[in-house]
Design a protein around this nucleic acid. Structure first.
Lengths: 220, 220
DNA sequence: TCGCCGACATCTGTATACAGCTTTGTTATA
DNA sequence: TATAACAAAGCTGTATACAGATGTCGGCGA
């Protein structure tokens, strides 16, 4: 999958983050600057820049002479991320949210329709895309740019683990997504951003329970 | 102030952030990669790396052909940062804090003594150093690494504005620091990290009021 | 067969050269 | 004198070459 057009640093960063979140680069995967540079059609410099920032987000670690590896989160770290995400969720509604527009409602409706079709015919990749779009929509509803940044960061850290569960418990996560989107559509329809936050908080809690059940309970 | 020893990227990043927070690089200041490279005794590459990450933290902006400038926060942005910091403060105690050690108490006591001496003989630079050390201590009390990271980020964004007020209202901020440290020492003495968070929340509120009073009320 | 050691391959970290963009000072013209 | 065009300097963005570090694999000896 070689991108023909020359990409800039931000594009490269976003794409690598996306691949980590979507498990195209699973934990332990080694990223090679030279290979990425070739793929994106640039030199190693902008790739290094992008990786350097991703490293600072805590998604990868680089060791000299070895390469850059996608971090494997410990159970405790995953718990910490989810704990934080729950608290951030409740702040979404309380901290100067942006007013709801008709476009928001249209987007959430489209996502709900897509999720319902997903329930009948599950596709992991499509589930990831849907969630990604939903996270983007919610982030945009956050009026405080500082909170929005933190929300995104925490999402990046949680995503890969979350999506690992999705591949294991397909029907379960599809049903949960439909329910979540129904609740969110209702909340957005009323212009009640605080309710959006509470729905998120609850769903994050469910998500963590699924992680514990499907990943942590397994014997290593 | 030329650092004789060769510095690595992390050192350079921390030093530049420090200079921005301490207003050695005030808002609008232009940072030149070449000059910094010379000063730190390295090439432009690691300096660029450091600046790239600082840029991603929102402390500076880079324009091609012009340079990297320290951002000037708008009133709204400052309010957003302080709002976020207040909420994060309350989370300090609730999210799995690390147990208090005798070393913590010794450090807070030393800071209190220093603050008391500062009240009699104010020195802006010394005030900054004291606050910086206090922020470090509090960050270390946070058990959740995600929250700790967010706490630090928000501090970096708030610091320069906060310290701009310190130069204007010396007696006022010195007295507030003494009071804050007395409360914190008391809380830490009881091992009550939740109280530490509440003290922080209150003090952040006071700090924002001082900013509004001393900076925003002025006619531009 | 197991353990140790050394050469090799490979990857990141850094330095440096060059290209592209922006600003600014200067000069010519109305 | 004012203004517009132009040239030059300076900065960041990128490419590339080299140095340093680490994993890997084969051979040797006990």
């Amino acid at each position: 999958m070689t991108t023909s057009a020359k990409a800039n640093v931000d594009t490269i960063q976003a794409e690598i983050i996306r691949r980590i979140c979507f498990l195209d680069y699973p934990p332990g995967q080694r990223l090679k600057e030279a290979a990425l540079a070739t793929e994106f059609g640039v030199s190693r410099t902008p790739v290094r820049d992008a990786i350097s920032r991703i490293k600072h987000l805590g998604l990868v670690e680089t060791r000299n002479g070895v390469g850059t590896v996608v971090v494997t989160l410990t159970h405790a770290q995953i718990r910490h991320v989810y704990e934080m995400r729950q608290h951030l969720a409740t702040l979404i509604g309380t901290m100067s949210p942006r007013p709801v527009t008709p476009g928001d409602l249209a987007r959430i409706s489209a996502l709900l329709d897509a999720a319902i079709s997903l329930e009948r015919n599950f596709d992991t990749r499509f589930y990831l895309e849907l969630n990604d779009q939903l996270q983007d929509l919610i982030a945009e509803l956050i009026g405080n740019p500082v909170l929005r940044s933190f929300w995104r960061q925490a999402y990046f850290q949680a995503a890969s683990t979350w999506y690992r569960v999705a591949a294991l418990a397909k029907a379960e996560v599809a049903a949960a997504l439909v329910q979540e989107l129904r609740d969110l559509k209702d909340a957005i329809n009323r212009g009640d951003i605080a309710a959006v936050g509470y729905v998120q908080r609850v769903q994050i809690g469910y998500g963590y329970q699924r992680i514990v059940h499907h990943l942590f309970s397994k014997v290593d």
